[in-house]
Structure formats: structure tokens, C-alpha cells
């Protein structure tokens, strides 16, 4: 609350002539404050890992809920993984589906790309983060697109793509795997050591669950990783038009045994 007041005072500075000492906050300070504010929220968010495996992209989240998802289908080849406040990314998920469908309806389904959607989200999140009268979105997103069937596809746009968007709209392209959520750094460090190219789905899933287990073992309030407490979905190169598939608890159990 106090933070918002400061931001507001800054923009109203010139009008507040009756104040004896104008309250000045530097732009750097505003940005830093907003970042601290979001970081406090994000550190509590459970993680989502997106990882390239032999046939596409595997997406796994720590999530014991059965109907509220952190990973979801956007369009034929595109999925969204999110960490942070559900209400905030839920609105972006639906807007992403809508904009994609409109674009695909107007032109052609293949014209809808993760790069385009990432820019759309990035612009929106950036605008919210910079607005003086709004709080930044307390979310992090991974926009993922599965590549063409041929794994050796040379063109950049035919390969798997993972875009990591921070709360302020700044995004980066990631390869092999990407992690969002509170302990993203710790998880990335473990994946750095253990990731191998061309893993089959069971091995890839095993790697992610073991990584979660390792991180959870160190946690104070440890959370047990079982097929019931994780959410698993994938974007498969081999399936028909709609590449997104959610794996049921039974399928996950079978893959992990």
C-alpha cells in the first residue's frame, strides 16, 4: 500500500505545490521497489519446469489441485506455463487463446506463433508494470511452442521454442529447459548437471520429479512429490493438429514406475 502511495506522489509531484518538500523518488528506485514487491510474491510460487525431450516439450508443475492448472493449451503448437497469482495469469491465458484464435481465423492456423504471443504478453505485462496507478503483475510466464517433426530442423522457427517472460515484460529465449517459480535457480542448477539431449518421456519425467524431490528435501515445509501432487502435460511433435496433451495421474504413475 505504502509503495503505491510513493509511486503516486512521484507522478503528482508538480501539482503538490502546497507541500513544503516535494517527495522525489528516482525511476531506478521505483523499478527496484516494484521488482522487490513482485519477487516477494514469486518466491512463494511453486515451480513449473518445461523441458525438451525427444518428441517435444514436457511441462511439469508442483500442483496438487486437479482442476486449476498452471500449464495449459493456447493453440495448436503453443502452450502456456505460469507461476504466481492464478487470477492474474488466468486472465492472460484466456486473452492469449482469444487473440490466437482471432489471428488464426483471419489468416491461417500456422501464422500463430509463440514469438508473436510472447510479444503480446510482454507488451501487456510491461505496460502494467510501468503504469503509475497499477501494481505489477505477480506472475512469470513460459510461452512454449513445439517444433516440426524433424528434430534436425535447421530453421530457428521450426525448432522447439521456450520464451521466459518476467513480470515487467522483459523476456528471453531459453533452450533445453526453463524453470519459473520461487526456487527456479536451485532447480536450474540441478538440471544443468543432469540434463541430456534426446531423453525419452519417462526419463525426462523422472529427471524433473527427482529434481523436485531434491529441492523439496531441503525445504523446511517439505512437500511430497507423487503422481497425485504434480501436474504433467506435453506438446508432442507426433500428434495431429493439436499438440497439447494433459497426462492423467494414472499415466504419470505408469511413466514413473
Amino acid at each position: 500500500m505504502q509503495r503505491n502511495t510513493r509511486v503516486r506522489l512521484c507522478s503528482l509531484e508538480l501539482e503538490n505545490t502546497d507541500m513544503s518538500t516535494p517527495y522525489y523518488v528516482s525511476p531506478e528506485q521505483i523499478r527496484q521497489d516494484k521488482e522487490d514487491f513482485v519477487r516477494r510474491g514469486i518466491t512463494q510460487a511453486k515451480e513449473v519446469v518445461v523441458l525438451e525431450y525427444r518428441d517435444g516439450l514436457l511441462m511439469v508443475a508442483e500442483n496438487p489441485r486437479k482442476t486449476t492448472f498452471k500449464v495449459s493449451e493456447i493453440y495448436d503448437r503453443i502452450a502456456l506455463a505460469a507461476a504466481g497469482r492464478i487470477a492474474e495469469y488466468e486472465a492472460l491465458r484466456v486473452a492469449g487463446i482469444r487473440e490466437s484464435e482471432i489471428k488464426g481465423f483471419r489468416y491461417y492456423r500456422e501464422d500463430v506463433t509463440a514469438k508473436w504471443l510472447t510479444n503480446l504478453y510482454s507488451q501487456h505485462m510491461g505496460a502494467v508494470a510501468q503504469a503509475w496507478d497499477a501494481k505489477p503483475l505477480e506472475i512469470e510466464l513460459l510461452v512454449c511452442e513445439v517444433g516440426a517433426t524433424d528434430a534436425s530442423a535447421s530453421s530457428g522457427l521450426q525448432r522447439n521454442q521456450i520464451y521466459h517472460i518476467a513480470f515487467d515484460g522483459i523476456y528471453s529465449e531459453e533452450e533445453k529447459y526453463a524453470v519459473i517459480g520461487g526456487r527456479a535457480i536451485a532447480i536450474t542448477e540441478i538440471l544443468e548437471r543432469n540434463y541430456a539431449d534426446g531423453l525419452e518421456m519417462p526419463a525426462a519425467l523422472q529427471l524433473i520429479t527427482e529434481t523436485f524431490q531434491t529441492v523439496e528435501a531441503d525445504a523446511e515445509d517439505s512437500y511430497e512429490i507423487t503422481p497425485e501432487t504434480i501436474e504433467v502435460a506435453c506438446l508432442e511433435q507426433t500428434t495431429a493438429r493439436r499438440k497439447f496433451r494433459r497426462l492423467s495421474t494414472d499415466e504419470v504413475t505408469a511413466l514413473l514406475s
Partner: peptide, 21 residues
């Protein structure tokens, strides 16, 4: 900025009618 007003409308036809006639 993305228009988030249509949240809750699962009706694509309605969205096209309103925004892209």
C-alpha cells in the same frame, strides 16, 4: 495492452461480432 474485458465469454462468435465484425 491486451483487452481483458472479454474474460468469461467463452463465445468466440460474440467476440468476433463485437470486435472484428
Amino acid at each position: 495492452m491486451l483487452d481483458l474485458d472479454d474474460y468469461g465469454t467463452s463465445n468466440f462468435f460474440q467476440i468476433l461480432k463485437r470486435h472484428h465484425p
